[in-house]
Design a protein around this nucleic acid. Structure first.
Length: 798
DNA sequence: ACAGGCTGTCATTGA
DNA sequence: CATCAATGACAGCCT
């Protein structure tokens, strides 16, 4: 249950974030404040640098056990732990749109408002402010706080100043940028190359310096704006990262003139951490929480609030902000490498991003996105979609097939509205207007309702796809949760399954086998071995009787059903509670004269202590025999006690597990009273029924487990099929584009009798059943389509 | 105090 | 008919 709860909680958080991304407003903070540590804790995780180390918790965990708080290895431990968590998170499904939106912010702010704010992750926090500062110079932190999350608490003078520093250049560069919306692929490539050369030559420091940039934006609007346009985010990111990794007064490196802008070293460092956090967050999916907490983290760091200790939340995204600078540098290099690749990818694959998307729908999309972001997270600035290319690699780890195709296919068109759309209807609306039909047919043609070839092909594939993918995302999330659970319990489940295979329902063949785990767990029985004569057919290993626990382990190889996961251990360990739970022991006359083999050891030691039932703490210095006698008495089942009371001359195990013939012989051998016989038969019946019940429950559990496995398999199949579907749809879309281009080519070459081209608004090409292509007037009715054009235009077949 | 899970037991059924 | 496994239902106990 603990595992379940843990993973369920984790899953809840994921699901909540997912919901918020979809558009459902979820007040995560208020929720988490009650049960979970603050979001900043989720983001930061326990870090030695910025949070109060929870040594007690660490020691309680397996990872941190044994590390002294003052140990020199503590940082190493944290680093190791963080890396380990990251590795563990690799197999956990993360919500890719999380870092998407964060990253998008910068991009769109670039396109819409200011390239600088977009570009620098360090200012993304501010960039919310930066945007507003640009658009609304009167914007104050309070206003910013009103815009979204708890930003009212965000009192970052440094960030504000840096913001202010950035915002103007954002204006300037925006102006320069507006004229360059139409970037060709070559331009972007050139920009990228130049940008990387700048970085390699170290020229970025001067180039990106505020004054220089100002001049640059003013003077040379040709190459540098372009450069800034596409590579600006990377540049700024890079600069911030450099600043970050160093956390030194390398303002020239950052180009943001931080020393003047930032009032204090502490703030500078914190800002660097902000930048790093944001960048890493945007690039790597540190768990699903990354979107919300980022501002909170930054705020927390900057405001120098004493970091509250996390309250036991298992989520430990382990943001790299607090890690050693070497790690930061390393990670930053990784980030830059990834971003370069992404930039290349943007330049090559998504050739229409910077031009069409950025230019066409900047304002409206930003509005939509802004609304969405308000609901989704605290950062009020999320915008461009082209950026999510940048985060694809990280996403691809988890959703390689499902999301990439979709995003790729969506991005060039109306990606942003879709991503930011908060409900399915919105999705439908966006897709309905721009779906494959729109791709396939030019707008004027598409407007015609009686076009046979265009509309009916794929009614609304993207909407359904998106919805399905959403659902699938949820299901995958669920699957991830389940997988996480199964991971945590894998060994136990395996053990259980093994025990299942090893479980022999034939009592005569599966002797008494306490499972080895039970035996190992049993701390009570150590020396006094029960009668070896009955061990081979001894009681069910599952029995709580202490004598069972003392059976030789080698016989327990074929362990019986293990109830629960740690039930046996519990039952073995919690002797005192067992004592309490058996108050009726007092009434049992402990006559050890009977020949019960299991109690033969006691018969030799008549000095039996009267069971008090109050013994909560067993004195380990007492004689083992006495202890075991107590245990045997107190762990005996009712039937065993009854048997002892009735002086049954053989063990209950024998009674229960002997075959019928031997059992009858055994009864015949002894002269037993009717009461004794009745008791023996009851014992046998109950014992067998007990085994049967255990087996029955075991089967039930196995059935459930198998069903769960089947569900998981089906989900995987579904994910695979969805991936294939995406690929098919993508190929279909490409084919349709080809067809459309051919259509237009053919149509443009058509001439009427007088050599004039057919106006596309009045004519359209139709495919006849025999493969011929007809040109038909659009206004004709369908009936006319069938006759008139055929006669008239059949010669136009080409 | 309450809920939920686990376990043992009984009754029943079908082989 | 006796035996036994399987299973639903219930109660008691524990966490």
């Amino acid at each position: 249950m603990l595992y379940l709860k843990k993973y369920f909680t984790e899953g809840l958080i994921q699901f909540t974030i997912l919901l918020s991304l979809i558009g459902v407003r979820v007040d995560v903070d208020s929720y988490l404040n009650n049960q979970l540590p603050p979001l900043r804790e989720i983001i930061l995780g326990p870090s030695s640098a910025y949070t109060q180390t929870q040594f007690h918790n660490l020691r309680n965990t397996l990872d941190g056990y044994g590390i002294h708080p003052k140990s020199v290895d503590l940082d190493h431990f944290f680093t190791t732990r963080r890396l380990l968590n990251q590795v563990r998170q690799l197999d956990r499904l993360s919500v890719p749109s999380t870092e998407l939106s964060t990253w998008l912010v910068h991009r769109d702010s670039e396109t819409v408002v200011s390239p600088s704010s977009q570009s620098s992750p360090s200012i993304t926090l501010d960039n919310g402010a930066g945007l507003e500062d640009v658009n609304n110079p009167d914007a104050t932190p309070a206003m910013r706080g009103g815009s979204g999350a708890p930003e009212s608490t965000y009192n970052l003078n440094a960030a504000d100043s840096s913001l202010g520093a950035v915002a103007p250049e954002g204006n300037q560069e925006q102006g320069s940028r507006d004229g360059n919306d139409d970037l060709t692929k070559e331009d972007i490539d050139l920009i990228d190359i130049l940008w990387r050369q700048d970085i390699d030559l170290g020229a970025g420091r001067e180039v990106f310096n505020y004054s220089n940039r100002q001049k640059e934006s003013e003077e040379e609007q040709k190459p540098s704006p372009q450069e800034n346009k596409d590579g600006n985010e990377e540049q700024e990111s890079w600069r911030n990262g450099v600043n970050l990794q160093g956390a030194q007064p390398v303002d020239g490196e950052t180009g943001e003139s931080i020393p003047e802008q930032l009032p204090g070293i502490g703030s500078q460092t914190s800002l660097s951490l902000q930048e790093c956090l944001r960048l890493l967050e945007a690039t790597f999916p540190f768990g699903e929480e990354s979107e919300f907490p980022a501002p909170a983290v930054n705020r927390e760091i900057v405001s120098n609030e004493a970091p509250s200790t996390s309250q036991g939340l298992p989520l430990a995204p382990q943001l790299p902000a607090a890690e050693p600078q070497l790690d930061l540098e390393q990670q930053w290099q990784d980030i830059m490498a990834i971003m370069e690749l992404q930039a290349m990818e943007v330049n090559t694959s998504v050739h229409s991003n910077s031009s069409s998307v950025g230019g066409t729908s900047a304002t409206t999309e930003s509005n939509t996105v802004g609304n969405f972001e308000l609901s989704a997270g605290s950062t009020p600035v999320n915008q461009d979609v082209s950026l999510h290319q940048a985060s694809l690699p990280s996403c691809s780890q988890d959703f390689p097939q499902i999301f990439n195709p979709q995003l790729d296919s969506i991005a060039p068109r109306t990606a942003l509205p879709r991503l930011s759309s908060s409900n399915s209807s919105n999705i439908n609306s966006t897709f309905g207007t721009t779906n494959l039909t729109g791709i396939f047919l030019p707008p004027h043609i598409n407007s015609s309702s009686n076009n046979v070839t265009s509309t009916p092909i794929l009614p609304d594939p993207f909407s359904t796809l998106l919805e399905e993918s959403m659902l699938d995302e949820i299901s995958l999330l669920d699957l991830a949760m389940e997988e996480g659970f199964s991971q945590a319990q894998a060994s136990q489940l395996e053990d259980e399954l093994d025990s299942d295979s090893g479980l022999s329902l034939d009592s005569s063949h599966s002797p008494a086998s306490p499972s080895s785990s039970e035996t190992s767990c049993s701390s009570a029985a150590s020396s006094s071995s029960t009668s070896a004569t009955f061990s081979e057919e001894g009681a069910v290993g599952y029995s709580t009787d202490s004598e069972v626990a003392t059976v030789e382990p080698e016989e327990g190889a074929v362990g019986g059903y293990q109830p629960g996961y740690s039930k046996l251990c519990r039952m073995s360990y919690q002797d005192p509670s067992q004592f309490h739970s058996l108050p009726h022991l007092d009434s049992i006359s402990h006559n050890h004269t009977y020949n019960l083999p299991l109690s033969s050891a006691f018969a030799e030691h008549p000095e039996l202590p009267v069971p008090t039932g109050k013994k909560t703490v067993r004195d380990k210095h007492n004689s083992k025999l006495q202890t075991h006698q107590d245990l045997l008495d107190k762990h005996s089942s009712r039937d065993e006690r009854r048997a002892r009371a009735m002086k049954i001359p053989f063990s209950n195990e024998k009674i229960i597990n002997l075959p019928v013939e031997e059992f009858n012989e055994l009864l015949a051998k002894h002269h037993l009273s009717e009461a004794q016989l009745a008791l023996i038969r009851d014992i046998r019946r109950r014992g067998k029924n007990k085994l049967a019940a255990q087996n029955c429950r075991k089967r039930k559990l196995d059935t459930i487990i198998n069903l769960e496995q089947g569900v998981q398999d089906l989900r995987r199949d579904k994910a695979r099929l969805l991936k294939e579907k995406m690929e098919f749809i993508r190929s279909i879309r490409q084919m349709k584009q080809k067809v459309q281009s051919l259509y237009q080519e053919v149509f443009s070459q058509l001439r009427d009798e007088e050599g004039r081209p057919y106006p596309p608004s009045e004519y359209s090409l139709q495919y006849s059943a025999d493969g011929s292509v007809l040109i038909m007037p659009r206004c004709v009715t369908s009936a006319e389509q069938s006759r008139k054009p055929e006669k008239k235009q059949k010669d136009k077949k080409k």
